[in-house]
Amino acid sequence: MPDPRPVPSQVSEAVTRGIRVEVMSRHTPEHSQPMQGTWVFQYTVRITNQSEETVQLISRHWVITDALENTESVIGPGVVGKQPVLAPGESFQYSSWCPLKTPTGEMHGTYQMERTNGEQFDIQIAVFALRAPYTVH
């Protein structure tokens, strides 16, 4: 029976409480070693504050799943060593890496944000594909 789930795109977008998260991923063959079972992907994230209040990114929670349904959870403070503060209309962009043991997979997650009044809330990072070229999906 075919898998009923849609195949995610290498681009995703989600807006939660006025905070937009856009992600684009790509395979990086120059860092991958398929013969050793390692495929490396770069993903670039842009977070834009479309709300009326200043927010700070406090922490991240990534859920990474490879083609064999092995799932890893990555939780930590900030992103790329930073906890950016975004005033209304401001954006923060960064790139990072994800190694997989299969040529395809997917990622999604949440960022924990905090308003200047101390209120904390999670924003969604929509699912996006990690996909090496020339693979069957």
Rank of each mutant, 00 (worst) to 15 (best):
residue 26 R to Y: 02
residue 16 T to S: 15
residue 72 E to Y: 09
residue 86 L to K: 02
residue 31 H to T: 01
residue 39 W to M: 05
residue 1 M to Q: 06
residue 103 P to F: 00
residue 129 A to T: 01
residue 72 E to Q: 13
residue 110 T to Q: 10
residue 86 L to V: 05
residue 55 V to P: 08
residue 59 S to A: 15
residue 13 E to T: 10
residue 37 G to K: 03
residue 44 T to Q: 14
residue 72 E to S: 06
residue 75 I to D: 08
residue 118 G to N: 13
residue 37 G to Y: 00
residue 129 A to S: 09
residue 69 E to V: 10
residue 130 L to S: 01
residue 42 Q to L: 01
residue 108 H to D: 07
residue 83 Q to F: 02
residue 125 I to F: 07
residue 93 Q to M: 13
residue 116 T to F: 06
residue 89 G to T: 12
residue 85 V to W: 02
residue 27 H to C: 13
residue 57 L to E: 03
residue 99 P to S: 04
residue 59 S to T: 11
residue 100 L to K: 04
residue 33 Q to I: 10
residue 68 L to K: 15
residue 15 V to Y: 03
residue 136 V to W: 08
residue 105 G to H: 09
residue 108 H to A: 07
residue 72 E to P: 01
residue 7 V to H: 10
residue 122 D to Y: 07
residue 106 E to F: 10
residue 136 V to T: 08
residue 5 R to G: 06
residue 52 E to P: 00
residue 1 M to Y: 03
residue 49 N to L: 11
residue 38 T to N: 13
residue 132 A to N: 02
residue 133 P to F: 09
residue 15 V to G: 02
residue 19 I to A: 12
residue 21 V to H: 08
residue 59 S to K: 11
residue 53 E to Y: 03
residue 87 A to T: 10
residue 112 Q to R: 13
residue 111 Y to M: 04
residue 87 A to R: 14
residue 101 K to F: 05
residue 19 I to K: 05
residue 88 P to L: 04
residue 32 S to N: 03
residue 34 P to G: 13
residue 101 K to T: 11
residue 103 P to H: 00
residue 3 D to G: 08
residue 115 R to A: 07
residue 103 P to S: 08
residue 3 D to E: 14
residue 111 Y to I: 03
residue 11 V to R: 13
residue 2 P to C: 06
residue 5 R to P: 03
residue 11 V to W: 04
residue 47 I to M: 07
residue 18 G to I: 14
residue 10 Q to W: 04
residue 84 P to W: 01
residue 116 T to N: 07
residue 107 M to Q: 15
residue 111 Y to L: 14
residue 113 M to S: 05
residue 98 C to P: 00
residue 16 T to D: 07
residue 17 R to K: 15
residue 101 K to G: 13
residue 44 T to F: 04
residue 31 H to P: 00
residue 4 P to M: 11
residue 13 E to R: 14
residue 132 A to L: 01
residue 103 P to Q: 04
residue 112 Q to W: 01
residue 99 P to F: 11
residue 120 Q to H: 05
residue 36 Q to L: 15
residue 87 A to D: 15
residue 4 P to N: 05
residue 99 P to I: 03
residue 39 W to P: 01
residue 30 E to K: 11
residue 25 S to H: 13
residue 72 E to C: 09
residue 77 P to T: 11
residue 129 A to C: 12
residue 50 Q to Y: 08
residue 116 T to H: 04
residue 43 Y to T: 07
residue 27 H to M: 06
residue 132 A to P: 03
residue 102 T to V: 00
residue 109 G to V: 09
residue 9 S to Q: 12
residue 10 Q to G: 10
residue 114 E to Q: 11
residue 46 R to F: 02
residue 127 V to R: 15
residue 116 T to A: 09
residue 111 Y to T: 01
residue 126 A to N: 11
residue 127 V to T: 15
residue 121 F to C: 04
